[in-house]
Design a protein around this nucleic acid. Structure first.
Lengths: 339, 339
DNA sequence: GACGTTGACTGAACCGGATAAGTTGAGCCA
DNA sequence: TGGCTCAACTTATCCGGTTCAGTCAACGTC
């Protein structure tokens, strides 16, 4: 089946290609009657303009890129990315932009992809995830001048636009809540230590624990996988002065931690309180349901997409703050049992 | 920063655009010496051909589309899609194809997206997920003649290429295993009933139970969410003749089922054996770890991508069978306790 | 030495849109 | 009635590749 082109529409309408182009793009230069006639014909024969031809002459790709740099194994398990993607996508498709996805092995590969996308004019801009402490991608993107929005921060995003949420405030709220319940020995199982937001959360945890006089406050580094989260929990719960509450940097590790606790004969929340980060449906899946620090991740993605389209449109790169994650108390937190 | 075009390379090399094109694409028509010189210059100035220009003249987009038609809420939670995507992506990027993703609300919207992609020449082909019983997308795709590979079946895929796995055999294996352990009352919590593979599994379940003389075998329909999976489990376990084993159509429902069982005071696996479908890391997260019917989903995705590229390349549409899911026994299954 | 052959390359057309620049014809006014 | 303006188009050019039809020099051949 032959795909209709603008010339087909023009022929049927008895006008030139130019007139059709003006009509379809709402430009002046055609009478209202002709415009309507052209629009009708276009719909009739199912014409949609070739994205390639349009990209070639308009010098815009009509697409946005997202490179995911995590091993497939953690990528799949965390609901975070899929939620983010669906939010991004909702915003983009509402504005007729496509989303181009690529999974990369490391930052070098990711930078190479950005360079290629830029050279091929395949995307008009990119969303950058999982900001690291001294992230090589930032100067690279600045150098190739590819419009970008960094999802992460604050700080470390150079001259690029960024969208961040106040993880420090959220973590502080969680610790204060646990202390209010009576907890004094609180531990934290953190995510990958070189991620910027892990750094921020760790600093906030240390600060609030110091302020509240919690001396045993300890952060154990992990990698977001259930295996590591479980191992870290086992180590924490085996120590002489075991914590009465643990905060996990994601939902998957929190669930693994819950299982380890139950396996070791501890009752949650009586013997151990658990707080998860990233309030996904997984948290409501287990028994007891997990108290969690959550936010609307799809909205976060949509917000980032909106911001990126603005940057592509020529707006100055801003550092925008998204909603702060909030605590949803559920069955996994309670005052510690007297000992 | 100005992006280099083929004309820039040509000027530097002192040849025509045509010569550069021949050199870069490995076509005859240039001497080996000139080819090398051109290649060197191209790398030097960081030239990559504009995907739009190439698409326009070669009439190929260099991209493959994937439309996801599930509510964001189940999309995120199930590890299945992300694993599938990363497998697809690995195969595609190895062959320099891009993946274009779109989240759609329903099949009408999905068909509209296919039409648009086709009209815009934005993709060279598509992967179709979540095959339904009488799937409107199949005739629609046949009509617009967009190269496609349907992930699902067997059956119901019309003239389109498809990739399927023998879910019936896998389910039969699971039931036989449970019966061998001594179970006689086995229930199943199925996924969305109008999905083709749910239908296939339900038929297989009924057949094997009948063959083995299990009279109480019952399938409860669900929707893959933890909420529904938990509710279904609660109903099953509250019945007078409660089952001693339950097979779940995905990992998320199985975990929810496990929690419900524990909440109701039942011990897994002594009082209740649990088998999950889709062996993701989630299954090893909980305690006891779940016995699961699993397979390499990323490999499945890669296989589908490979097949789609072949179809795009002009190969006849075939119906290819992928690996059959296999049972991995873990702590959630055991002989039923004597009562 | 006239003639075909071949390799190495050039020039120009083409893909399907966007758009600047030119061309009508109608309407208005002096 | 000639000159002017403006709306409503058409024509031509461009975007950056691919590709087909030439061109031309070098070579071999009878």
């Amino acid at each position: 089946m032959k795909r209709p082109t603008i010339a087909d529409v023009a022929r049927r309408a008895g006008v030139s290609k130019g007139a059709v182009s003006y009509a379809l793009n709402g430009q002046p230069g055609v009478s209202e009657a002709t415009r309507q006639r052209i629009l009708t014909i276009a719909t009739e024969i199912g014409f949609s303009p070739s994205s390639a031809a349009r990209a070639l002459s308009a010098a815009t790709a009509g697409a946005v890129g997202l490179a995911l740099c995590r091993p497939a194994r953690t990528l799949g398990v965390e609901p975070f990315f899929m939620a983010l993607i669906s939010g991004v996508e909702a915003e983009l498709s509402a504005r007729s932009y496509a989303l181009t996805l690529q999974v990369v092995a490391d930052h070098d590969a990711e930078i190479a992809v950005y360079r290629r996308w830029w050279g091929e004019r395949r995307v008009d801009g990119v969303l950058v995830c999982d900001l690291r402490s001294h992230d090589r991608r930032i100067p690279a993107l600045e150098q190739i001048q590819l419009p970008a929005v960094v999802i992460g921060g604050p700080g470390g995003t150079g001259e690029l636009a960024s969208l961040w949420s106040d993880d420090a405030a959220a973590l502080t709220e969680a610790v204060e809540y646990l202390v209010a319940l009576g907890h004094r020995r609180i531990a934290r199982v953190g995510g990958l230590p070189d991620l910027r937001h892990t750094e921020i959360r760790t600093a906030a945890f240390t600060a609030v624990c110091q302020r509240l006089g919690l001396v045993d406050a300890v952060t154990v580094s992990s990698d977001y996988t259930g295996e590591e989260g479980g191992r870290a929990t086992r180590r924490l719960l085996s120590s002489a002065q075991r914590p009465t509450a643990v905060i996990y940097d994601n939902d998957v590790m929190a669930i693994a931690g819950l299982s380890v606790a139950q396996e070791m004969g501890l009752t949650v929340p009586a013997d151990l309180s658990i707080v998860a980060w990233d309030d996904s449906p997984l948290c409501r899946l287990v028994h007891p349901p997990l108290t969690a620090l959550g936010r609307d991740i799809a909205a976060y993605g949509a917000h980032a997409a909106r911001q990126l389209l603005a940057v592509i449109g020529g707006d100055p790169a801003g550092r925008v703050q998204d909603e702060t994650p909030h605590l949803t108390p559920r069955g996994s937190t309670a005052p510690p049992r007297e000992r």
